[in-house]
């Protein structure tokens, strides 16, 4: 069974709100950069950066991060998952990095992302922005910016569909 939880309008509003929150919390955009986690986070980070540019008039650097090589389940998953590109064409040392992901669930991908970032540089601060927080954390991790809290059952599946992938913007919950 499928149900739409967020539509295009909702997602637009969330991006807009989080962009404002990021600027407010950091008192501007000095030393700020965005890093989207492959794959869903990448598109969201780009949208956030455009929104921030609209508001502040100047843009901030955006990178993409692939966490595959840092996962804790890599040796359980067979075959080994596809390694995608990490492209952070700027120095993150002493920068405030906002990690962007689509769904926050167990927290394990964020743990992997933190380790991956630390190998690339030494940011002064790392913050976390997610479109959906669905609960069921297995690690002590929380997001600084949350689009929507959605209580779920473990067996349920949350799908974030984005128009960058040729789909209609929406967030869907599936019960199995």
């Amino acid at each position: 069974m499928q149900k739409e939880l967020l539509n295009k309008k909702d997602i637009d509003r969330i991006i807009s709100r989080i962009a404002h929150e990021i600027i407010e919390k950091n008192k501007g955009i000095d030393d700020l950069c965005l890093v989207g986690i492959q794959r869903g986070g990448v598109h969201l980070a780009k949208r956030l950066s455009e929104k921030i540019k609209d508001i502040e008039g100047s843009s901030i650097p955006v990178g993409t991060l692939d966490i595959t090589l840092y996962r804790d389940d890599i040796n359980i998953k067979k075959p080994h998952p596809i390694v995608r590109r990490t492209e952070i064409p700027f120095d993150i040392t002493d920068k405030k990095v906002v990690l962007v992901d689509d769904v926050l669930f167990t927290g394990r991908s964020i743990r992997a992302a933190l380790d991956a970032l630390m190998d690339i540089g030494r940011p002064s601060q790392i913050q976390l922005a997610v479109l959906v927080d669905r609960g069921h954390r297995e690690l002590p991790i929380r997001a600084d910016y949350v689009g929507k809290n959605i209580p779920t059952a473990r067996a349920e599946n949350i799908e974030v569909l984005l128009q960058e992938d040729g789909l209609k913007d929406s967030v869907i919950i599936e019960s199995r």
Binding site: D66, T68, L69, Y70, I74, N75, I82, V83, R84, R85, T86, E87, D115, D119, I120
Partner: peptide, 23 residues
Amino acid sequence: TTASSFKDVLQRDIKKVPALRGK
């Protein structure tokens, strides 16, 4: 394609990833 991702890793200051730890 996978090799090009690893080539990126080799261009960083820390040229090591934990992917096959324990193997």
